[in-house]
Design a binder for these strands. Structure first.
Lengths: 99, 99
DNA sequence: CGAAAGTACTTTGAATTACAAAGTTACTCA
DNA sequence: TGAGTAACTTTGTAATTCAAAGTACTTTCG
């Protein structure tokens, strides 16, 4: 790879969004509150980053009721998985380049 | 490492600043114009990111004249090298965690 | 039934950050 | 003297980020 920095994904350069995606890439589905707990952020802040990822079609949303309470689940899309992989590969190349 | 995301360095999450540091970590010294050429950014933008890294004491500056022209050289500091290593290690851990 | 509480937002507002473009300083060369 | 180069600094604008407050919908409690 010529310049791995060129393959970094703007959307995934943000710590929170990368973390959301890394949770989703390994967990298949994850709900709003668990994500909020794991990341330790306010719900509004989390919602806005999730929305950014959803807008980019990196994840999909399913709203259901669990125990009579609303429960929103997120799932990574194929597009999201590809983008994540590309970004992580670029990171890996950056790391290798400098070690 | 429990959560590698906690070890990411805010200063180095920006693409340009990470790239500047990665050039300096492998090149020992590098001047302003070469950096500008490598990164393909405007001089003003580059100067402001360098200033941020300098303020954080991640690099040091030496001004000389070469061929009767001003020449500013940058060198990574020990502190900068340590911070860079820590950040890259965290990145590596993130990558490993998700592969 | 009405009030309180939980989930998952949306909106608001303020602070920070990023960037291009223009201006500046200092020096050199024709 | 006038143009040119290096390395900024300043300016102004746009984008980003975040906490906090507000909202919609639903369930549970008294």
């Amino acid at each position: 790879m010529k310049n791995p920095f060129d393959h970094l994904d703007k959307m995934l350069e943000h710590r929170l969004r990368l973390q959301i995606m890394s949770v989703l890439v390994t967990n298949d589905v994850f709900d709003f509150n668990s994500l909020k707990e794991v990341l330790g952020v306010t719900d509004g802040n989390l919602a806005s980053h999730i929305k950014a990822l959803e807008k980019e079609k990196y994840l999909s949303v399913t709203k259901t009721f669990v125990d009579r309470k609303p429960n929103t689940k997120y799932k990574i899309t194929e597009r999201g998985r590809t983008a994540f992989k590309k970004h992580v590969d670029a990171l890996e190349a950056v790391v290798k380049q400098t070690k």
